[in-house]
Structures are given as C-alpha cells and as structure tokens.
Design a binder for these strands. Structure first.
Lengths: 136, 136
DNA sequence: GCGAAAGTTGAAGTTAACGTAAACGTATGC
DNA sequence: GCATACGTTTACGTTAACTTCAACTTTCGC
C-alpha cells in the first residue's frame, strides 16, 4: 500500500478486482486510463480505481471496452463546448434505451427461469411419488 | 414462406432477426439447433425460431453461445433423471444470481446516466446564461 | 426449361480482449 | 549480496463469434 491511502499498485488493484495485471495494462494500452508513474512503475489514483470499477461493471452489462471508455469520459470534468454537451446527452439517451431493453430481457429471462425451476420441482415431486409407491 | 405457417426458410429468419444466414448456420454448427432438411435445404420449425430468439436475448444479456445452449436445453421436455434435475436447478440458481447482480449494475448505471445528464443540462444552462449576459 | 434467386459446404480471415512468454530492472528482508 | 517478489516492455498466441470468399447445387417464377 501507499503511504497515504489514496494510491494503489497494479497488483493491489488486480487482487481487489480479481483480474490479472496484464488485463489492467491492457486497459491502459487502449486508453482507458493513464496512471501516474514513479520511474516506470505505475501508481493508480482513486480516480483510476473508480474507472476500473466502471469498466468491470460495463463488462458485466455487455459493454465493449471502447463503449465503457466513452461512458467514463462523460463523467469527466467540464468540456464546456455546447456541441459536445449535446452529443453527450444524445449518447446518454442511447445508453438509457439500451439499458431499458436489457431490463426487459432480464425480466423475461427471470420469468423463464422461474417457470423452468417449477417444472423441475414438479418432476422431482412426481418421481418421488413414484418411488414411494414402489416401496409400499 | 411455407405452405402452413409453421416453418421458415433460413433467409426468412435472417431477415426477421436482422442476422445473416451464415450466422444461423454457425449456430447450427455449434449445436444450438438441428433443423429438419428437405434434401439439403434447412427447414426451421417454430421451436427453432424460438430457440433463435432465446439465443439473441441471451447475447444481449452477455451470455456466450454455449451458455445459451445450456439454458435452451433446460426448457426441453423431460429428462427425468433425478440427478439431472438437481443440477438443472443448480444452474438455474446460478443464472438467477447472475441476473440479480446484473440488475444491480443496471440500476446503478441508470442512476449514473441520470446524474450525467443533469450535469450536462446544468452546464448548458450556465453557458446560455453567459451568452445572454454577453449580449446585453 | 431456363435464368435468377436462394440454398449449400468448406476454408481462410477478422476483431476484441486478453493470455503467455521472454528478457529485463528494482527493492527488500535476512 | 543474493534470493524472492514485484515491477516493466515487446511480441506473439489464443478463443469466441462471426465474416468473407469461392465454388458449387437447388429451387422458383414465368
């Protein structure tokens, strides 16, 4: 750990998030963050750690790394350009739509799982019945 | 189309779902379904069409094709083997947990998007204010 | 019955997201 | 003062899920 609690080594982050150091370096290679260096050793800030968290969340939601990068960049400080703000809002709307559809899919699949489990339980009960009858 | 309304050609399905015929053949190659044949031409049933739908939904939820295949097979008719039923239920539980976590992620990301959009709108309002002042 | 449209297989190429390996510097505890 | 752990770069390999291409055959509409 660092002297203050505000920086992390690459292996600390890899352990915390259950990914390899290679993965983290890969994320840097494609521009997801640019950690400070002491010599050639990387030093990760809390901001970097947060970005990593967002990337992994994005992955679980099926985003590509470039997509995650775009979303992360939206949260960055002021790019005051009006045009940029408008396109950012547009991007936000698109992502929201995507999430909305994903939510529908998720609900449907949950329902399917419920049905499947009930079916299984019914069959199990039936086979137990059969078994009991045999025994008597 | 077919004579009855219960079968589909490969191109009909590809059009309906916005994927290429080659993709559908790829799904067959890895065993996601095994359509009937008339000669060497594939004839898809309603069941095949449903499987395709489930695969695409799975993809949107970030499932791999083998994972989707496993889920599809769960819905298939009776594999009465008790042990199989139990492992199926176990699989269902795991998928449910996955979906549960995904739902959390989804909510968080929605909240983030709301916050980001509000930020953008605030900035836009601020820059409009600035602009007005300049004009006067 | 014939030409265009739609179907087929097989194989090689592509992209994203890392994994793996070699070859090397740095620091730290004993 | 040297092993051991951790760090680095460079470069090639791998896997999944397709895409692209070539070289056919089959089927439909007229």
């Amino acid at each position: 750990m660092s002297i203050d609690g505000n920086t992390y080594t690459i292996s600390e982050l890899s352990r915390e998030f259950g990914i390899t150091t290679r993965t983290i370096r890969h994320y840097e290679e494609i521009g997801l963050f640019t950690p400070q260096r002491r010599g050639q050793t990387r030093i990760f800030s809390n901001a970097d750690r947060t970005k990593l968290k967002l990337i992994l969340r994005g992955k679980r939601l099926g985003l590509s790394l470039p997509e995650s990068r775009d979303i992360i960049n939206m949260y960055e400080p002021g790019k005051n350009n009006t045009q940029q703000l408008l396109t950012t809002i547009e991007t936000i709307h698109q992502q929201r739509q995507r999430l909305q559809r994903q939510l529908e899919d998720l609900k449907k699949m949950m329902a399917d799982l419920d049905r499947a489990e009930n079916g299984c339980r019914a069959e199990l009960a039936a086979s137990r019945n059969l078994h009991d009858k045999k025994i008597r």
